[in-house]
């Protein structure tokens, strides 16, 4: 699939005009992108480490998952919106960056894994599941979100 036309369109859009012309605006949007990443990373770590039995063992898994999920939802919305704005500044370059695509693929998979697999499976009585299932899910989740974060950072090095 040729993605270049989309990135050419993004490169000439009003978002690109703003992000290229006003460095201060870009910086402020980037702050919100990074803050949301911190929130997302913190909530993912909290929920997955709880599933692994590493942190907050005195708090029920359901309580931890239910309280982290709204912050995961909010931070994902902010990350995606600010990410589209930030990518408009270097749209053509990103189209040819393999780590950008690695990040997008792992982000899309991470969202699918969270909302279609992890949450539906862990909602309800965990004693019905194999004792190892929540732990394997947590390790897979940490692996996926680590790949999202690390490949995102790697964009800057490539």
């Amino acid at each position: 699939m040729d993605t270049l036309p989309f990135f050419e369109w993004l490169d000439t859009s009003i978002l690109a005009d703003i992000s290229k012309a006003y460095g201060g605006t870009f910086a402020i949007v980037q702050v919100f992108h990074l803050l949301s990443m911190v929130v997302l990373g913190g909530m993912i770590l909290t929920s997955d480490l709880r599933l692994l039995g590493v942190v907050m063992r005195d708090v029920p898994v359901d309580t931890v998952l239910d309280n982290t999920q709204p912050w995961i939802n909010r931070s994902l919305v902010v990350i995606i919106l600010t990410g589209i704005f930030m990518s408009s500044a270097v749209a053509i370059k990103l189209n040819y960056n393999e780590f950008f695509w690695a990040k997008m693929a792992s982000l899309a998979f991470g969202i699918f894994f969270l909302y279609a697999i992890k949450r539906p499976l862990l909602r309800g009585d965990l004693s019905e599941l194999n004792a190892w299932t929540p732990k394997v899910l947590a390790i897979a989740s940490l692996t996926v979100w680590f790949t999202v974060a690390a490949s995102g950072r790697w964009i800057g090095f490539s």
Binding site: F113, I117, V144
Partner: peptide, 12 residues
């Protein structure tokens, strides 16, 4: 769903 999830985890 549990079996599917474990299969996906192995793929991950």
């Amino acid at each position: 769903l549990e079996k599917l999830a474990l299969g996906i985890c192995v793929g991950v």
